[in-house]
Design a protein around this nucleic acid. Structure first.
Lengths: 178, 178
DNA sequence: GGTTGCAGTGCAACTCATTGCATAGTACGG
DNA sequence: CCGTACTATGCAATGAGTTGCACTGCAACC
């Protein structure tokens, strides 16, 4: 149940409309927590009745009105409370793992092809993270205090992708070299 | 929608009751795909009406009757079809990443403590995988063909845990050493 | 003049998964 | 004999998340 909290973090950084949030969840935060706009609007409604956020309508030129949300005191309290509660380690869920166990009953060539594609996807994502890192944190040894979190998240993303690549390589070595 | 397929794999290896499957999903396969017994019974019902599996009642001494499921020809077809379709790369979802972005608005000490706990959990899981590997695959260079999948899955688990540990260490280095 | 894309908010239906509850017999330790 | 744990199957309610659809209007391209 962390979408609420992801939204709180995002609003704590900067007020936003549901639409703005949806775009943020397509990029930055979205690399580690996906959410569709439908879900965001629904949760925003619930959060507003819980008084964690409040909204006001903003009229715009040449564009539809928008509802800009901002975090409330209660929202900040909730965010602080949430950070002080231990996070359960999330279980992994790998469809590829299931497929690997299905090797004796399935199509080995297709699985190998799939792993190759997946390796490319991991490599592309890693390249993207590295680009972002070079762009936003050219000097990793001196990062502003309030940016350390975002930097560490980016590092986590890189480590995940590197791990993914390493796994694909091991699989290909075993399965393709025969 | 891979629980069906995880069950098909498990039944292709060996027939089982819902209860047996639930225990398998607490161990081996369960490290990469969790499922509760309620969910398993429900999905088994659906799979039986889809003719992917069939069941017969087995009476037991001193124990309740059980319904033993086995995979059908159609089930094997489905499994084969599924392995030949590319798997979408699953999005990562890290509550810890969200918490790291919440650092400026939250309780940094609690987050650091949380990361320490998480590091231990990763280390414990890694140790468990390494034990399993040593026990079941004492010689990784000569693994039977039908065991390669399970071995690769185990390797994937190890890589994930190693990545998790590396991330925790980076976080602790940044946040705790101050 | 028509299509595509962006900005903006939302409902409805559905699937997936968790949590809590129900039932029932056996085995075992204290 | 009492409580706990294991074997065994399942329903009901709720929450989380996806997919599909609906409506408006502007800007840009062909």
């Amino acid at each position: 149940m962390a979408l609420e909290h992801a939204i709180l973090v995002s609003l704590a950084e900067k007020t936003a409309s549901g639409y703005d949030l949806a775009r943020r969840f397509d990029a930055s935060i979205g690399h580690f927590w996906k959410a569709s706009h439908q879900q965001i609007y629904k949760v925003l409604g619930r959060m507003e009745s819980d008084k964690w956020v409040e909204s006001h309508l903003v009229a715009q030129d040449n564009r539809p009105d928008k509802k800009v949300y901002s975090i409330t005191g209660e929202g900040r309290d909730e965010l602080r409370r949430w950070t002080s509660v231990p996070t359960p380690v999330e279980a992994l869920r790998s469809e590829l793992a299931v497929k690997l166990r299905a090797l004796p009953f399935g199509d080995a060539d297709a699985i190998v092809a799939d792993v190759r594609t997946r390796r490319q996807a991991h490599a592309a994502q890693l390249a993207y993270y590295e680009e972002s890192a070079a762009k936003f944190y050219p000097d990793p040894d001196s990062i502003a205090d309030d940016a350390v979190g975002a930097w560490l998240v980016l590092r986590g993303g890189m480590l995940v992708e590197q791990g993914g690549i390493a796994w694909c390589d091991e699989i290909l070595q075993r399965l393709a070299e025969r």
